[in-house]
């Protein structure tokens, strides 16, 4: 299902940009941590939640970010599991990818995927994850 190909200059550029972006975000997070809760209070409430009484799929992302800034990853997972996991995965990827490519590592890609799409199984996993996240947010209230 997953095949490997040689890295190109584009891959290395993207990895470098990603690493730079992650480093910038980390620095900004440290700098903004003291004022982040005050800034977050100024954000407007979720209108979807106000109108329907249900959280939207993105609800809890701000609280998750604040929890991460406060060093509480478990609370962040509770507030918005997918956003928290994506943040961790993105940071890990940004850290590893440039080093991996610099060491001559190959790039994985989906070999058996239909043209332009994900294999049925992977598609099911992604949609299920999104649905489970929303169900979790609704159940949590």
């Amino acid at each position: 299902m997953i095949a490997w190909r040689a890295a190109t200059d584009d891959d290395r550029t993207l990895a470098a940009v990603l690493a730079g972006g992650a480093a910038t975000t980390a620095v900004l997070a440290v700098v903004a941590a003291p004022v982040a809760p005050a800034l977050a209070r100024l954000l407007p409430a979720c209108v979807f939640h106000a109108v329907t009484g249900l959280p939207c799929p993105g609800c809890g992302t701000t609280r998750a970010a604040l929890a991460l800034l406060a060093g509480d990853p478990f609370a962040a997972l509770g507030f918005n599991p997918l956003a928290t996991l994506a943040a961790f995965a993105g940071c890990a990827f940004a850290l590893v990818a440039p080093l991996w490519l610099a060491a001559g590592g190959a790039v994985p890609h989906l070999a058996s995927a239909p043209a332009g799409g994900l294999p049925r199984g992977a598609r099911l996993v992604v949609v299920s994850a999104l649905a489970a996240q929303w169900a979790w947010l609704v159940a949590r209230g």
Partner: peptide, 23 residues
């Protein structure tokens, strides 16, 4: 810096949904 970071993040998200829709 924020533009570059935002582009990477939004490209990942957009590409995921393009993959979901076979595009």
């Amino acid at each position: 810096l924020l533009t570059a970071t935002g582009l990477i993040v939004s490209a990942c998200l957009s590409h995921l949904f393009l993959l979901l829709f076979g595009g």
